[in-house]
Design a protein around this nucleic acid. Sequence first.
DNA 1: CCAAAAGTGTTGCGGTTACACCCATGT
DNA 2: ACATGGGTGTAACCGCAACACTTTTGG
Lengths: 225, 225
Amino acid sequence: MKKINWKNFKHAVIATDVVIFTVIDNELKVLLIKTNKGPFKGKWVLPGGLVNIKESVDNSAAKHLKNKTGLSNIYLEQLYSFGEVNRDPLGRVVSVSYFALAPNKEYQFKTTKEYDEIAWHSINEIKKLGYDHEDIIKLAIIRLKSKLEYTNIVYSLLPTEFTFTDLQKMYETILERKIDKRNFRKKILSLDIIKKTNKKTIGGANRPAHLYKFKNRKLEVVEII
Amino acid sequence: MKKINWKNFKHAVIATDVVIFTVIDNELKVLLIKTNKGPFKGKWVLPGGLVNIKESVDNSAAKHLKNKTGLSNIYLEQLYSFGEVNRDPLGRVVSVSYFALAPNKEYQFKTTKEYDEIAWHSINEIKKLGYDHEDIIKLAIIRLKSKLEYTNIVYSLLPTEFTFTDLQKMYETILERKIDKRNFRKKILSLDIIKKTNKKTIGGANRPAHLYKFKNRKLEVVEII
DNA sequence: CCAAAAGTGTTGCGGTTACACCCATGT
DNA sequence: ACATGGGTGTAACCGCAACACTTTTGG
């Protein structure tokens, strides 16, 4: 990794930061890394980094996501650009933030020289983060909640096959409210966005549940809730 | 104006571009300037410019808005950041775009060395613009339509006092559909966001209309339509 | 047989839509 | 008197919310 002397920059530089969400045990989590250098040494921050002059900003976000977490091919969309003058104590950095959604799996996260810890954090247990990254996460949560209500984006948090209860719990966790089971099933089925497979869950100490799949695993605008 | 040699930049630089909307004669218009230099000489483009290292990105947008159009204190919000590598033929420029809303008035626009024409353009009559500014405008229109439906943002396109018909026409123009007059009045009144003044329109060859004011001239989230 | 989660319909309410005529003013 | 836009109420419909019991499996 080439060392960067920020003081050499006469102009604002551009970075990308990615808020990566997943849901584990009915809790919304965000992926953070613990920096071991710079003014926020020892603090948890969002994965991200500078935008190379030869890559698009979107590519930069995808690249940093991949490099720091190993994740790729997950849902990624631009969130907002943070451009306050003093948001980075080392220089003028404008951050184009992104938010990403990952299904809950056993990921093998990498560490590098810049950080030696990387972990999921419950959004309720986030302490003081470096930079303005708490603001970024807050905004990302608002965006996520909102998109959940008017798109099928939830598919990107679920595995390919899931039960109706999995789906409902996802909404309940993120929207932080209970939803009536019968009304929920009625609504989702009427939207014609998922289809029943001929498989069922096995091994539970109770009645097996049908497994469903999304008909389209790409973003669609649908009034879900 | 200091001359900028783009080739000197080793890193991407940041610019802001502003999509300024108004409604004139039941048409949605956007304010464009005609550049007289650079690769898009003679083309219409959005007002905007580079972000200074000592100003926030938000300030930069407000400043360029003011400098190039004389407009200030109007509604302004960040839209999206455009970061493709080749969007500016002279160098690597990432544009943080904004959209602004102005009531229809007789503005005295300024011209500078960089452009000698500045004018409102109907969004239906926009030809080939410089840069990716058509994309920016398209996105801004989507955002505007959407915000019109779930906020009181329309206040920023109207004068302080307006008739119910003015208000309804604003919606009909931007959303591009007819709205039932009685249902519209019922809905707006039930939201309790405007109040009747004791004035009426004068001089029309017909029954005078009551004038209304917004109770709050700041952004609120309300299900309007 | 018991525990645990899956699965299934009906009713009432409230908000949205559709729809047509009289009113106040200027010419 | 007539042309023009201002201003008003009601009924049907539809989507949403509230609500409880039976089924299927494993232990």
